[in-house]
Design a protein around this nucleic acid. Structure first.
Lengths: 222, 222
DNA sequence: ACCAAGGATGGAACGTCATTCCAATCTGTG
DNA sequence: CACAGATTGGAATGACGTTCCATCCTTGGT
């Protein structure tokens, strides 16, 4: 594009914005300072003036993404739609979720945990269990979004994803039914797998458990 | 230590065993081929003869850990104790969980998913929901173990951990009660945080939801 | 308007890492 | 005993994060 150096001044915000773009384009593994300095038309030293190191930079990016997600999700939401808003936002930036942790604090992670905890205040859940349950829900939302157990997202077209799932499903069909009695019969389900549906299934299970526990119950002896 | 080269021949198994030791000692970030070749008393070329690259090696290590965990957990377990066995095994090798994915398949991940699905077969849960629910449980166990939302594990003494948690709890107390109405009151709970308790809380929530959804039966029990 | 002081910048230089390459050694087989 | 292929060790390579430093720019005091 342009060979010259930049005219506007750098700032932490500008660096983070460019980094998020590059993280989205190349993934965390493909995100390098070389790419970053090229896009910003500057040198490494300039970037390091605003940011301690790459790790801090990615953390700042993840916090920005989470902050935007929380701002976009109106404060009137219930637990389920809050969780879905966060899932959708983090899913658009698949590198981000793994950096969302409570301690050492990612600033907006505290906001999210607080919102979950506050929403629990309006339920019959015993007060002394609120923190454990809030953290469990936070944990589910962030962790499951981060792990991405079915990694077919590398393929960016929907058709390619379907083809890949179909190929895997076929290989499941030819597994040994003795050692894999369940999976051999589940190949069809795999073909219809969808990350978001999968997330929702677990979330509803969790929230049903919450209703059950706060209704009249003790955590069932499992 | 010893300057000589090794006498016994290398093998994939030997390499994986040494790698697991080093991963445990230095974490995934600190695990390098230099350390590995020093411990094995060989050169990089020899290691690459048995293993395609570092990523494959770590995946093999994770699969070994998961396989050992499944072998140790007897086949007669119910859902809850199976989940706890896997949690405990993966928690002993904190680098491993993040590499446990279903597609592209980590071999023993398929075994785990199959065992979860098979345990659901003895349940009133509608057959067409089994795969979704099994994957949800798999997802919870593996993802939550991987994410480690409260990263105080860097400190290896229990006393140090407590001190760190106490310090964080103190900082929560002085947050703005306006923006953090829940957390400011939860500092005490944080002080008592325990990763495993936290995992169990979410797991029981999930299993309660399962019992609830599957029509009041007793799925978790054999 | 001038000047010092420190805030910001760009890029060269450095050390570390994963990976590749190749000459050397071992092992089985005829 | 010789040859081919399997296996090994370590030097060479290239990419990367980070540090260093000379330079530029801004600001506030005079």
């Amino acid at each position: 594009m342009s060979p010259a150096r930049r005219t506007e001044s750098l700032s932490r915000e500008v660096v983070v914005t460019a980094a998020i773009e590059l993280l989205d384009e190349h993934g965390e593994r493909g995100f390098t300072f070389k790419l970053l300095t090229e896009r910003l038309r500057t040198g490494a030293g300039a970037v390091y003036w605003h940011v301690a190191n790459k790790e801090e930079l990615v953390r700042l990016c993840a916090d920005r993404v989470l902050g935007d997600a929380l701002a976009a999700a109106g404060p009137e939401q219930d637990l389920r739609s809050l969780a879905l808003s966060v899932y959708d936002a983090l899913d658009r930036h698949s590198w981000a979720a793994r950096h969302v942790i409570v301690l050492p604090s990612l600033p907006h992670a505290l906001h999210l945990l607080d919102r979950i905890g506050t929403l629990l205040t309006g339920t019959p859940l015993p007060a002394e269990r609120r923190f454990l349950v809030a953290t469990a829900i936070f944990n589910y939302v962030v962790s499951v979004t981060a792990q991405d157990v079915v990694r077919v997202a590398t393929v960016d077209t929907a058709a390619g994803r379907d083809a890949l799932l179909a190929a895997y499903a076929k290989s499941w069909e030819s597994l040994d039914p003795q050692t894999f009695p369940f999976l051999t019969g589940a190949a069809t389900d795999l073909r219809e797998h969808d990350d978001r549906d999968q997330f929702v299934t677990g979330l509803d299970l969790l929230l049903d458990g919450l209703r059950h526990q706060s209704g009249g119950g003790q955590p069932g002896e499992g």
